[in-house]
Amino acid sequence: MAPPRDRKLAIMGYRSVGKSSITIQFVDNQFVESYDPTIENTFTRQFKLNNQEYRLHIVDTAGQDEYSLFPDSYSLDIHGYILVYSVTSAKSFEVVKVIHDKLLDMVGRIKIPIVLVGNKTDLHLERKVSTEEGQKLAQTWNAIFLETSAKHNLDVQAIFKGVIMEIERQDGNLPEEKKCIVS
């Protein structure tokens, strides 16, 4: 069997959108109710996809805002990005756009493996950002889009599967997805 592929991922977004909750749900299969602002943590988890073992190193970043300066480490040796906003916060949705633009500038490439995540769907009565808005934004970035609830472990695995598939596709290890148009 092939040795595990090391992949380093950065999970980024505005403060309190659930970056750590998503990460801990994926790594430890638990939801942490209490909120402590993250400075920066790195988590590791083995993950198998398409008969290939991956060793994921997930950098859980501090919450960013539109004025945050990103450390160079957010562009060096990072294979893929998970950009998170809360569906209950229009501000977090605006900030994720700024983060995306800064990432492209910093990385110096037009296309980077990204999954856009609208978190906190369990708070549907407080929703401020529609599914359609998220889908539209992801489409303009040519990124994968998912809505999730870290609390209910809804599609948390799919986030990491999606970013790995995007990395592999851009590395030439998977064929480009065929866009099917039916008329």
Rank of each mutant, 00 (worst) to 15 (best):
Q135D: 09
K91F: 05
G80F: 01
D155C: 13
V117A: 06
N153Y: 04
D122W: 00
V59T: 13
E132V: 15
P37M: 00
Q52G: 05
Y81Q: 07
Y81D: 05
R55E: 12
G18I: 09
E177P: 14
E177Q: 15
Y35H: 06
I78T: 13
L9S: 03
D60G: 08
Q52E: 07
Q46Y: 03
M106K: 15
M12D: 04
Y81K: 03
F145T: 10
I78N: 04
G172P: 01
I112P: 06
E168L: 11
K91T: 14
N51C: 04
V182H: 06
N119H: 04
Q135G: 11
N29Y: 02
I39V: 15
Y81T: 05
I24K: 04
F31V: 08
T131V: 08
P37N: 05
P71T: 14
E40M: 08
I22G: 09
K179P: 06
G134P: 13
K178C: 10
V96M: 12
I181W: 11
K128V: 12
H152G: 08
E53N: 14
V95F: 05
R169M: 12
L146D: 00
E132Y: 09
A143V: 13
T61F: 01
T121R: 11
G80V: 01
G108V: 11
G118C: 07
N50F: 01
L83D: 00
L137S: 09
S68H: 02
S183D: 13
R45K: 15
K151Q: 09
H152P: 00
H79A: 08
H100A: 10
A2E: 11
L83E: 01
I39T: 10
E53Y: 03
L154T: 15
C180Y: 12
V32Q: 00
K179S: 13
A138N: 12
F70E: 08
Y74Q: 07
I58N: 03
T42Y: 05
